[in-house]
């Protein structure tokens, strides 16, 4: 099945998806890697620079080009998600409904509440085509790869690799 979805995702959006489905995702997504996850989980929910309810987190540290005060995403494929397994239960507990990454994660924490979308690792130049603009960047003190980039995406082609019903495509 191929569907178009827009962020924020509802629980209904999530429960309808099955491992193997193709999703074209539009709207806002937020990048986070190891350090950003630690910071997200160390702050009270109301102090986060994004609303985690229905949010989609992208495991990605982009290559960016700065022109004046604005940033442009040059290449932005996914990073290895397994490093974030230790924070998974925490961020899904905040209401996050989708994670985009590569290589897979523990399937159990997704059950009944969220999905894991895979994009092709290394295909950063292609992924950047789906990023229409950088809406904001937070926590640049963590460094460019680890900062929290709020990206506006359009029809980002993803595969549901772990669904909310316990199915996973990973071998």
């Amino acid at each position: 099945m191929a569907v178009k979805l827009r962020t924020p995702l509802s629980i209904e959006d999530v429960l309808r998806l099955k491992a193997g489905d193709v999703v074209y995702l539009s709207g806002e997504i937020v990048t986070a890697r190891d350090s950003a996850h630690r910071r997200i989980l160390s702050l009270p929910k109301e102090e986060l620079p994004f609303n985690p309810e229905g949010a989609v987190i992208y495991h990605c540290g982009p290559v960016v080009r700065k022109t004046g005060e604005s940033y442009e995403v040059v290449s932005a494929g996914p990073t290895t998600s397994a490093r974030m397994n230790r924070y998974l239960d925490g961020v899904l507990g905040l209401g996050v409904r989708g994670i985009i990454g590569k290589g897979g994660m523990k399937a159990e924490p997704f059950r009944g509440r969220a999905v894991y979308f895979a994009f092709t690792g290394g295909a950063g130049s292609l992924a950047a085509k789906s990023v229409k603009r950088v809406k904001a960047v937070h926590w640049l003190d963590l460094g460019i790869p680890e900062a929290l980039w709020v990206l506006k995406v359009e029809d980002f082609p993803l595969i549901v690799a772990i669904d909310a019903h316990g199915s996973s495509l990973y071998r």
Binding site: C60, G61, P62, V63, V74, S75, A76, G77, T120, G121, G122, A123, G124, S125, L126, A127, A128, K129
Partner: peptide, 14 residues
């Protein structure tokens, strides 16, 4: 992604 990297001279992988 390889084609885009070559055509636009941008990093294929971030």
């Amino acid at each position: 992604a390889i084609e885009i990297g070559k055509a636009e001279a941008i990093p294929v992988c971030q």
